[in-house]
Amino acid sequence: MLHRIASLLLFSGLVAAATSSPREAHAGGSYFLLEADTGFAESAYDGGDPGIYYGFRSGLTWKPKGSPIRFHLLMGAGLRNSQLLGAQAGLIYAAEQYDLDLYVSTRVVVPVFGVRLYAEVGAGDRLSFQSLTRDPSLGGLSVSSDQFLLLTAIGAQVRLTENISAGLRVEMNPLAVDSTLISHITGYAPTHLRMSGIIHVGLHF
């Protein structure tokens, strides 16, 4: 389902980009922003393979008079997954973790040659769902937890039409996690600075 939504959004953005005119690319400001994004996320564990990221955020924008800077107040959600394969004393296991981030953030946008560059800082909560599939003789284990989340991001955004924008974003989530179910059993250390490379499509209205 998420795959389809993300694909649809990206396809819509590409269609909009293909059909937009230069005049539309210099669209005016808006009061509200709704962004959907997808990308790759660093694994939740050192040495793990990258996972997939999906997310969205929405919020208000405003710009002080006489200032080139536009501010955003956003709330958002992001979902990342991580997978690990390994062996415990020779017994194969498959570990999977889903992290759902809920946060509030502020974004500061500066225009540079028609491109809107931004930096974003936020805080929230990370809900983590972990499962460990082991040999049938041992059975599976799972655990859910949540932890305080910090979010930092930088990115660039280009308005494609009056109401649609596209952009790139690099996000980093510093976390203070020492032990999880997966790290406890597999020995993989949690990633404390988890990076994500994201593309996003925005609706402005």
């Binding site: 809920l102 929230g124 909560d125 655990v143 949540d146 406890h184």
Partner: peptide, 19 residues
């Protein structure tokens, strides 16, 4: 919007719960 986002964050988060 600010009130709503803060309220939603507080309600959604709850307290930290680590393994």
């Amino acid at each position: 919007h600010l009130a709503m986002t803060m309220a939603s964050l507080l309600l959604a988060c709850g307290g930290p719960h680590e393994p």
